[in-house]
Design a protein around this nucleic acid. Structure first.
Lengths: 185, 185
DNA sequence: GTCTATAAGAAGATAGAC
DNA sequence: GTCTATCTTCTTATAGAC
């Protein structure tokens, strides 16, 4: 996840390099050669860690998907819609801020979308969405939730916001999201 | 912009096919072969209309960028921040709803971003942003505007929202954006 | 875990006929 | 405006040595 060659197993180094390159060039714009070059090894060395490029993509996005499930688990354990919404927002904002410029370009990547469409991955996203809308939401609520989800993901890459430190960005994002959703702070 | 082979000049047919494919597969995931296949012609026929793939991308996004400038022009002609914000939102929401599922995947495409980074294209986006934040905005405002911009773009592809008709979606988006920005309706 | 070497195909792009 | 044919480069992926 960092720019300078990080320590860790060879597998982890591949994932770190891939994540950075995917975020900048997109999955389709990132070749195995680029990943290998960034690590100072050959393509074959990368293929030793992962049988296909798709499996690299999968391994890169899996931790984020797992986090979404954890967030949903914790939120569902809360009592009351306000508390659940707050728990989801805290979790998602934490995830987004942690990744900053990575999340947005990546979230809308067609190749990532392709992998997420099948699998329980969709379920994780739907759970989060459902926790924010509540049961049987009206159209205005659906729109507000969609804007919050999208807005949070995109906020990390906004050039106007990169100078904000993580704590400040987290607080503003949560407050703005609550206002958008019409939940009292 | 439609799925069935549209009429028009050969150039327009190329742009229509390219837009649809770019939105689904991303720019990098769309080859000239795919564009040609969709039109039932060869790659060479496509190259007769555009010297490079980049110029196709450019031609596809230019109308949207022009619209942003028009929107900024009209908004700047208004008196008072509330009126300017409302004018920008009406314009941007109109643009987004008009394109629906196209805008989001496309807006965050690394190849599109590369083309937009240079050129007066950045200026158009910055003008819109500036009209929404107002002069010398605080951090909370910057975050709110970033979330609105991102949220609006993403809203078009949300599966929860596709069944909404254009009029309803437009109204909800404007209202939600105004609430997020803390502007009275 | 990493290497060299290579296959097999698709990419962007060009030349020139019709 | 569209075609066939071709070039070059890059792609994912494999085989097998160290």
């Amino acid at each position: 996840m960092q720019d300078i060659r990080p320590a860790g197993t060879a597998r982890e180094r591949v994932l770190d390099a891939a994540l950075a390159l995917f975020a900048e060039h997109g999955v389709n714009g990132t070749s195995l050669q680029m990943i290998a070059d960034r690590l100072g090894v050959t393509k074959a060395a990368v293929y030793h860690q992962f049988p296909t490029k798709d499996e690299i993509v999968q391994a890169v996005i899996n931790p984020a998907l797992d986090r979404l499930d954890q967030i949903a688990d914790e939120a569902e354990a809360r009592r009351g819609r306000g508390a659940q919404v707050r728990a989801v927002l805290a979790g998602v904002v934490g995830l987004v801020v942690e990744h900053r410029r990575l999340s947005a370009v990546f979230s809308f990547d067609p190749s990532v979308a392709r992998l997420i469409r099948r699998e329980p991955a969709v379920r994780s996203v739907e759970r989060i969405n459902r926790l924010l809308t509540g049961p049987d939401p009206d159209d205005a609520t659906r729109v507000a939730v969609a804007m919050v989800s999208g807005g949070l993901i995109v906020a990390g890459i906004d050039p106007d916001l990169i100078r904000l430190d993580d704590d400040a960005l987290r607080e503003h994002l949560v407050n703005t999201a609550l206002r958008t959703l019409g939940v009292r702070r």
